Simulated assay, not measured.
Amino acid sequence: MAAAISAKSLTKEFGRREVLHGVDFEVETGSVFGVIGPNGAGKTTTMRCLLDIIRPTSGTIRVLGTDPRAGGPELRRRIGYLPGELFLAGRVTGRTLLAHYEAISGPVPPGRVDQLAERLGLDLTRHIRKLSKGNKQKLGLVQAFMHQPELLVLDEPTSGLDPLVQQEFHAMVREAKHRGQTIFLSSHVLSEVQQTADTVAILRDGRIIAVESVSALREGAVRRVRFTTSGIAAHDAVARLTGVPGVGHVEVLESDGTATLSATIGGDIQPLVRMLASLRLTDLVLEEPDLEEAVLTMYAAPQEEPR
């Protein structure tokens, strides 16, 4: 099956400043692809190039099998787009605005708009100028999802949404994927992407520094373990723990009759489990992998100089 999106050697210059430096990635049809990066990393620029809002300086792009520069209105109707900086006209109601977008994007299933509005807690009878930032974001989401496009391109989609609405949005993304739609979304917060994405690209200073599955990120991320054991001296427990591959930063929290130790561990946890099985444990806490820390480590790693 052909990729829903393909970008090769993508560069973009604004005057003398190059903001994308040879970006390469592919998005599988029917998958959720997340792009993570700090503000200014190039996420929005990449999305705008994909949609032919701006044109790349060099490189090639294919979106749903078509060069976006030649796709025209026919290609755009197959895409739902939520921009990062959402500007909506203010003198009409939400329902009127969505009717306008429906005339542009194509048919919307009967009742679909009301269903989405109800799920997101959006009042479509209110004038847009009276809506809060969060409610405008909900309106933007309804606009993007309502015609069930083949491809959804969502730039910082949870911006301004409260936690309950964010969870509803994640459910909408999962349902879209189940229907075979492809979702390309961006965020500067990993936790927003890891709930729904199959693959994550990490963008820094206009370069993709890693493309990983969420499961691979979890496997490579650092966990924290804390346990209390009896019948063994603290220094002996430390010696056993430091002998486990991937263990680092061991700390003795308590050593009066029992030994309480804390440590970080990366990679495979089976050696740790085997070591812990040899101890008489009275307490054990193994935390979820810290994906944020894994990504921040990638941000902090020095980049190779271009050749």
Rank of each mutant, 00 (worst) to 15 (best):
M1K: 02
A3C: 04
I5M: 13
I5H: 12
S6R: 15
A7D: 00
K12N: 05
K12H: 14
E13I: 02
H21W: 13
D24K: 02
V27F: 05
E28I: 03
F33M: 06
V35G: 01
G40F: 09
T46L: 06
C49G: 09
L51E: 10
I54Q: 09
P56G: 08
T57M: 03
P68A: 03
E74A: 15
R76D: 04
R78V: 04
P83K: 06
P83V: 09
F87M: 02
V92S: 00
A99C: 06
S105K: 15
E118M: 02
E118D: 11
E118P: 01
T125H: 12
R126F: 07
S132Y: 00
K136M: 10
K136H: 03
Q143P: 12
A144E: 12
M146P: 08
H147Y: 14
Q148W: 04
P149G: 09
L152A: 09
G160Q: 04
H170P: 01
V173F: 10
R174A: 10
K177F: 04
G180E: 09
F184L: 14
S186E: 10
S187R: 03
L190C: 03
Q195T: 05
I202C: 05
L203T: 04
D205L: 08
R207Q: 00
I209R: 02
E212F: 00
A216Q: 13
L217K: 01
R223T: 06
R223P: 00
V225E: 06
R226Q: 14
F227G: 10
I232K: 12
I232S: 09
A233Q: 10
V238C: 14
V238Y: 14
L241T: 15
V244D: 08
G248W: 00
G248P: 01
V252M: 05
D256I: 07
G257R: 12
A259I: 06
Q270Y: 11
A277I: 00
L279Q: 08
R280S: 15
D283N: 13
D283K: 11
L284S: 07
E288A: 13
L291C: 07
L291V: 11
E292R: 12
E293L: 13
A300S: 15
A301L: 13
P302K: 08
Q303L: 12
E305V: 15
